[in-house]
Design a protein around this nucleic acid. Structure first.
Length: 600
RNA sequence: GCCCAUGUAGCUCAGUAGGCAGAGCACAUCCUUGGUAAGGAUGAGGUCAGCGGUUCAAUUCCGCUCGUGGGCUCCA
């Protein structure tokens, strides 16, 4: 039984609590207790406000609870303390939760009498034959499946965290309800630990570190969702890209560069204007034609495929591109580097024969994991999304493709969940998720079949039989987008990049001005060895220079005073380890180059 | 897009019950040349997000716009 909720979409803020030490039973107890906390909150709101229309609430994510309701007044964060106080009172009263089962008609009358119109709709959703239950707690009674804690006093520690809008049933055509989120734990210590984790996540927030470490910015003047990579961020990106290119060549990929805009006809053929228009920007007029900025790279890669007649002997073709695309995202969903309007995908398209597809997919999954291992991600799982009701392409093709995906997941021993019918209309897919340093899950890679575009563009190859065949076409992005991947990486490392990715690997610190010249000479040697370094020539004391370097999270500091100048050594300080003593410069350089090469 | 909150110096944040705006850090200049996480002094830096309204007077009150943050997934 799936007691732990999983999500296909990127969660933010992501669930922080891992509860590794908790058993399934205690998790269920926690869920039950949080469900009750949600009811207590609803009861408190009903005590404080008139005409509260209840929708539903319950445990949320894996740390708290929420409840949705419709109120005549708008709740703001300032209202939370009063609700908390009322909740505390209900908890102190230690009221029992009483399960009341009733017939459908009786339930309807009950809800009508209370004027609970959302609840009436929810009641109608309950399939015939299932028991209809209410839970009573003092004078508060709510249609609810349960289960609940025994008494309100079982909620030992809670805090209300935020108010938010929430569409009824999550549909934006429905009225907007008010949602209050809270956290609840079995003990004060659990709650404190949770709040500590929230604080830890805040410290790692890539938007905050992006500013503090001068990595990137997004400015109002240019526009929301459009990223500027500052020198240090750009340096990290460059290192990621260099690594990515080397690995792709080693995996038998070729690289492409394609234009950023294309004629409307191209997008009509591809189907994007039909299916994807709401994510595309308005066309621009060039000569007498309309051009669209690309939301995807695939039509261009297909053009290259079609630039000549292809033989089965050429397949598989693996074509990758760091392709920059622009997509319209609703203003409210933009978020730092995680959700932007212009981004660079580490995109690739694989064209292959049916016989090749299984090994291609396997290699792709293995490749993704290998890449992520290099960045310190170790824990993976996957989602397999299969054929939806409305789909293009023959069922036989779908079955073949889906089994290739599944085989790859099994042979790589990836835990996966099947999202039955959750695939896009044009093909099944696998999404790979991974855990970061503090246990949060991120969905990064996607491997996706496409039965639509090859058809629309009439993509083919000549087989052994001399006849034309349709190749399989697979889209895949491993890192996802460089923007989002970089954001995750910043949070994963908390801004303290390992030596191989650090924008600056070492800083040379003169004790006084008299060592400045020697420091510049040391810098020259570091650079000549291919290392990234600079010198702090400011006039502060050594403590201040160390503090600055420490806050910039530079892996190594080399301190040079009269002693070092005389001995020809450097005093090394590690960002994490502190004072490492004096070393000969060549030894330090060798050590740094070794760490760089070993990606640590 | 929708709900709520929010926007004051490069950053973090005070402040004005409506009367020409303030701190710390960062920056510049000078003094200091100090051995492993902040030496000192002086100075520069603001259309108080933008536009409109009320007012003798608006950064402050009101409206709109833009941006940012939390959400809009699970769900009787």
């Amino acid at each position: 039984m799936a007691f732990k909720r999983s999500r296909v979409q990127l969660p933010y803020p992501p669930p922080l609590s891992m509860f590794a030490e908790l058993t399934e039973d205690t998790l269920l107890d926690l869920d039950r207790m949080r469900h009750s906390a949600a009811h207590i909150m609803a009861a408190a709101v009903c005590r404080l406000h008139e005409n509260v229309l209840l929708d539903i609430g319950g445990p949320s994510a894996d740390d708290g609870f929420y409840y949705d309701f419709d109120l005549s007044t708008r709740l703001s964060p300032e209202d939370l303390p009063a609700i908390e106080k009322e909740m505390a009172r209900l908890i102190a009263e230690d009221l029992p939760f009483e399960r009341v089962e009733m017939g459908r008609e009786e339930a309807r009358r009950e809800l009508e009498q209370r004027g609970q119109r959302y609840k009436l709709e929810r009641l109608a959703d309950i399939p015939a034959g299932e028991p209809i239950t209410f839970y009573r707690c003092g004078d508060f009674m709510d249609l609810c499946r349960g289960p609940h804690a025994e008494r309100t006093g079982d909620v030992k520690a809670f805090a209300l965290l935020s108010v938010a809008g929430s569409y009824y049933r999550g549909l934006e055509t429905n009225p907007m309800l008010q949602r209050v989120y809270g956290a609840a734990f079995a003990s004060k210590a659990g709650l404190d630990e949770h709040l500590r984790r929230l604080e830890e996540a805040r410290k790692r927030d890539h938007r905050r570190l992006g500013r503090e470490l001068d990595l990137f910015s997004i400015t109002d003047d240019v526009g929301p969702g459009l990223v500027h990579w500052h020198p240090k961020g750009a340096r990290v990106r460059c290192l990621i890209e260099d690594f990515w290119r080397r690995e792709h060549f080693a995996e038998g990929y070729d690289l492409l560069y394609t234009p950023h805009i294309g004629r409307s006809g191209l997008w009509e053929t591809s189907g994007h204007l039909g299916f994807y228009r709401e994510s595309m920007y308005s066309p621009m007029e060039i000569d007498s034609g309309q051009y669209f900025i690309k939301p995807m790279n695939c039509p261009f890669h297909i053009q290259i495929y079609k630039s000549g007649k292809r033989s089965y002997r050429e397949l598989p073709l693996r074509w990758a591109e760091l392709g920059t695309v622009y997509r319209y995202e609703k203003a409210g969903v933009l978020h730092g580097l995680f959700r932007v309007r212009g981004f660079t995908q580490d995109d690739a398209h694989i064209f292959c024969t049916p016989e090749q597809i299984e090994s291609e997919i396997r290699a792709t999954v293995r490749f993704a994991i290998r890449l992520f291992n290099a960045f310190g991600f170790k824990d993976f799982s996957a989602f397999l999304s299969t054929r939806p009701a409305k789909a293009i392409g023959e069922p036989g093709l779908w079955a073949h493709a889906t089994s290739a995906l599944e085989t790859a997941l099994k042979s790589e021993s990836l835990a996966y969940t099947v999202d039955e019918g959750g695939g896009a209309f044009y093909g099944p897919k696998v999404d790979i998720k991974m855990k970061d340093a503090i246990g949060r899950q991120w969905q990064m890679s996607t491997v996706q079949f496409d039965f639509n575009e090859p058809e629309r563009f009439d993509v083919s190859y000549v087989g052994e039989d001399g006849r034309e065949h349709r190749p399989f076409m697979v889209h895949r992005a491993l890192l996802g987008s460089l923007e989002r991947f970089f954001g995750v990486l910043v949070e994963h490392y908390g801004g303290a990049f390992p030596v191989w990715l650090a924008p600056l690997q070492a800083r040379v610190l003169p004790l006084t001005d008299r060592q400045a010249e020697r420091c510049r000479a040391v810098l020259g040697e570091l650079r000549a060895a291919g290392l990234r370094a600079d010198v702090d020539e400011s006039s502060g004391k050594i403590g201040a220079k160390i503090r600055t370097a420490q806050m910039e999270k530079i892996p190594y500091m080399l301190i040079l005073g009269p002693k070092e100048v005389e001995s020809g050594k450097v005093s090394v300080r590690g960002r994490a380890q502190g004072d490492l003593g004096a070393q000969a410069l060549p030894d330090f350089i060798a050590r740094l180059r070794d760490e760089d090469a070993r990606k640590i």
